[in-house]
Design a protein around this nucleic acid. Structure first.
Lengths: 114, 114
DNA sequence: CCAATCCATTGACGTTCGTCAATGGGTTTG
DNA sequence: CAAACCCATTGACGAACGTCAATGGATTGG
């Protein structure tokens, strides 16, 4: 089913700057969230936490992914800085979970994935 | 309203690798889409195309954003490579629109934003 | 106290990214 | 044809990224 798309008529030397609905500040914020998720390992971690019933500890991720422990730690720091996850320490373990009250916009993006 | 989260009981030296629901290949694909959107300029362009009734030509974006024409062209190439947009040339103009039949997963992500 | 375990930080490395200036190709107007 | 316009590509540059090895702090078990 091919949708015919009529191209706009244009005049040389005259451009039509489109009006951006979203505020630049909002665009910036959203791109930060996307940046945090735009890595295969971090995306897998985020989805795992989204679907987990219990907080997950770092050692589990280290055992799952084929990357070193410092790299896992590095990725978690990125997710933390983006405000996507929170950490609770108990004993020698660090348990991570999705931030309990994510902005609705962020939550919507996460739910749209996978 | 604070949601009490019970941490799992753990035993030293025993990890519980979480089972990933999404296939690694799917994760990889999704992260490619997110990567394409994880830049403020490209995100603004993508949202603009998502909400536009007509295809938009490059010169309009060049007039809108505070970046050079080659940079706009570079960003459009990234969006093209990710399969997010399509281009139709007429005369001296290149008109871009969202790819007419995006994968549902991709469409869902786009709709979840802003 | 000592050893083992878990985790974060640091420093280093090669890769990718975002940007621009310069160039060239294609199209239209005069 | 010549000039103007629109756009893609190339090459270059600094910045950010993903990864690891090494180190150290904190906690627990013997």
């Amino acid at each position: 089913m091919e949708r015919l798309t009529v191209l706009p008529e244009r005049e040389r030397g005259v451009c039509c700057p489109p009006t951006l609905k979203a505020r630049p500040e909002k665009i910036e914020q959203t791109s930060e969230i996307l940046k945090a998720l735009a890595d295969p390992t971090r995306l897998a971690i985020a989805l795992c936490l989204r679907d987990a019933k219990e907080p997950v500890c770092i050692c589990d991720f280290t055992a799952t992914f084929d990357i070193s422990q410092p790299t896992v730690s590095h990725h978690m720091a990125k997710l933390r800085d983006a405000g996507l996850v929170e950490v609770t320490k108990r004993g020698i373990w660090s348990f991570y979970r999705l931030a309990p009250s994510l902005p609705v916009a962020t939550r919507r993006i996460l739910d749209a994935i996978g």
